[in-house]
């Protein structure tokens, strides 16, 4: 187990390094396609420089603080992953959490931690829906989480006209956000590794038959894992709103599928290891902040996101893929 843990850490770090290298290579290719000629200065100043330095622009504290929501979401997804379940509803939970925090902050004026709690609760309840369907009707969680996310995103968008969206009135929350994310990552890892419910969850991830043989109540374990996963996802959206990351509701589907995908990618890159997922989420956030800073003729942020996904995919192939895919 210890070796496996180190391997997950190693994977996350390896991905970061390889990703940066591959990103540079992809930039060169894209600039050549966009401009029809190869200009080293364009690649450096409009592509590589923002990508490498964009994340650092406001210092490490801001980077880690901004990455905190992504870390929470990645943790939520990795918890479900530990139980062998695919949580595809990250974007929906994120949107729901953000909306809940916004409503709570603007209507009640409660302090930020209460708003965060409300968003976590909203996410947890929404995550319980696919959990309940899986427990009662044995409906696949991948389907359930994806469809509930779909519902949440578009329902919120439909209601957005009725709600006045307000900018987060909260003070600078980078330090608490950072602490919360760090503490939850540690807590998630410790509970998965060292507690009885954690072992239940890992056995469920091994296979349902094995878990049942070991005496695990598989339905209950899956339900609670999806609830917790939803809770963390909701908290992630809430935290992002409170940090000032989410600006308005009508953009939800566009603006928030990003974090959903980032969280899934981070959890997958770490193979579901909570600490690995947290580190991978920071790395992904670093790159996506860099992508956001790209603003030139050759590289639009959309192209940047595409390159980011390419980078992550290549990383996954290099770090996780096994040689000779065909099973002997």
């Amino acid at each position: 187990m210890r070796n496996k843990g180190f391997r997950s850490f190693g994977r996350a770090l390896l991905c970061l390094c390889l990703g940066l290298l591959l990103g540079a290579a992809a930039m060169i290719g894209v600039s050549f396609l966009a401009l029809g000629e190869f200009r080293w200065e364009t690649v450096c100043q409009e592509g590589l420089l923002p990508l490498f330095t964009g994340g650092w622009r406001d210092g490490p504290l801001a980077l880690l603080g901004r990455a905190a929501p992504d870390v929470l979401l990645a943790l939520g997804i990795s918890l479900a992953w530990q139980g062998g379940m695919l949580q595809l509803g990250g974007a929906g939970l994120y949107a729901l959490g953000a909306a809940a925090a916004m409503l709570c902050a603007s209507l009640t004026g409660l302090p930020w931690y209460a708003c965060l709690g409300v968003s976590a609760l909203a996410g947890g309840l929404w995550g319980a829906v696919p959990g309940l369907m899986k427990k009662r009707l044995r409906l696949r969680e991948a389907l359930g989480t994806a469809l509930t996310a779909w519902m949440a995103i578009y329902a919120l968008q439909a209601f957005s006209g009725l709600i006045a969206w307000e900018q987060s009135p909260m003070p600078d929350l980078f330090v608490p956000a950072l602490l919360i994310a760090g503490a939850l990552a540690l807590l998630a890892w410790l509970s998965v590794r060292f507690t009885v419910p954690g072992l239940d969850l890992r056995l469920l991830g091994e296979s349902e038959k094995t878990a049942r043989y070991a005496g695990v109540d598989t339905g209950k374990t899956a339900f609670w894992a999806l609830c917790l996963s939803g809770l963390l996802g909701g908290a992630a959206g809430g935290l992002d709103y409170l940090l000032g990351g989410v600006h308005q509701l009508p953009d939800l589907s566009l603006a928030l599928t990003g974090p959903g995908l980032h969280g899934l990618a981070a959890a997958a890159l770490a193979g579901g290891h909570p600490l690995g997922a947290a580190i991978a989420a920071v790395a992904v956030k670093y790159l996506s902040l860099g992508v956001g800073a790209m603003n030139g003729a050759a590289f639009s942020p959309e192209m940047g996101e595409a390159i980011l996904a390419l980078i992550l995919y290549c990383c996954a192939a290099l770090a996780l893929g096994r040689k000779g895919g065909r099973k002997a």
Binding site: L199, R202, E206
Partner: peptide, 8 residues
Amino acid sequence: GFPLENVS
């Protein structure tokens, strides 16, 4: 009955 993938 002796899984070793996710458990020690």
